[in-house]
Design a protein around this nucleic acid. Structure first.
Lengths: 161, 161
DNA sequence: CACAATTCAATTGCGCACAACTAAATGGCT
DNA sequence: AGCCATTTAGTTGTGCGCAATTGAATTGTG
């Protein structure tokens, strides 16, 4: 058709970036799975703990904003963290819609054991701090561009079956 | 304790790279979700189709090697593609353990409609070809390093509860 | 040939991600 | 005050990813 030379090359290129991204993300998952086994939590649960350690107790909503996750993901995850004794959930007194997620003493205590995790991860990547920063910056650009694309270019064809 | 200066900075840095990776991967997912809606398949299903379009009919095993996925993921996914009429699964005659995944005519035909996808994705990223290649190369390095780490450094503590 | 080890796909079970929906509480508006 | 839109969590349903197990077929070895 009116497309550029080798159309099948495009089908390959495209796979490259997103597939590579995906593969890297899953490879990280494997490493975290092993390292976090000691702590008895999964990687997404670890992310929640990181946010709570950094910002203190937060309502589910705020937690979701930090992590780009909604209640459909967070509700069951937080329930598991509560079962594990790391977190408590209490309906806010001043706004009954909101649920405050609070660290228990065990949750706070876990931080100490978690502090060795980042270095082990960094070691596993074999990248130095600057390389990691550069890559991270690039990925964040990408994410921004993609987010923008979802909300601008694409809704053009919102109307269909 | 005996750790370096700002321990909590490490807890942040670490989140950066993997979280950024994760976020980018999910952002891609959103874009693909919208673009692939026309084709009636998900992104992982699209990846399977890409491999089949490029390499022709393949046993599940080979498919898994290309995609780094095992039968636990592929079996149900392929069943859905079969239900959608894009693929057939037939036990190999020469090795009854193996299942050949074959494109149906519809599966082959879908390729034409898929050929516009990569350009739309590329446009959504806002990156040019060189930038994408560079990033991809970096991510593949990272994946290799992480894979190696899982199989060398970590099995040291294979023995536990 | 017989038997053990390996290979391959499928299944089960768990957790995450996300869309769509529900239910309750809140805030704004008349 | 009364009503309605919005906000906030939770629930349901679907699909992916992975560990662990199962069962059948194949290969290797004595």
């Amino acid at each position: 058709m009116d497309t550029s030379p080798a159309t099948s090359d495009w089908l390959r290129l495209d796979q490259q970036i997103c597939f590579s991204l995906n593969a890297a993300s899953r490879a990280f998952g494997s490493v975290y799975r092993v390292i976090l086994k000691d702590l008895g939590i999964t990687y997404p649960q670890y992310l929640v703990m990181l946010v709570l350690w950094e910002h203190g107790d937060l309502p589910v909503k705020k937690l979701g904003e930090h992590l780009r996750l909604d209640s459909g993901t967070l509700s069951p995850l937080l329930k598991r963290l509560e079962t594990a004794g790391l977190v408590r959930r209490e309906r806010s007194a001043r706004d009954e819609r909101s649920v405050e997620v609070r660290l228990t003493e065990e949750g706070v205590a876990l931080r100490e054991r978690a502090e060795r995790v980042p270095r082990r991860i960094a070691a596993a990547t074999g990248f130095d701090v600057d390389e990691i920063s550069a890559l991270r910056a690039r990925l964040d650009e990408l994410t921004s561009a993609l987010d923008a694309a979802v909300h601008t270019e694409l809704p053009a064809e919102h109307r269909e079956s």
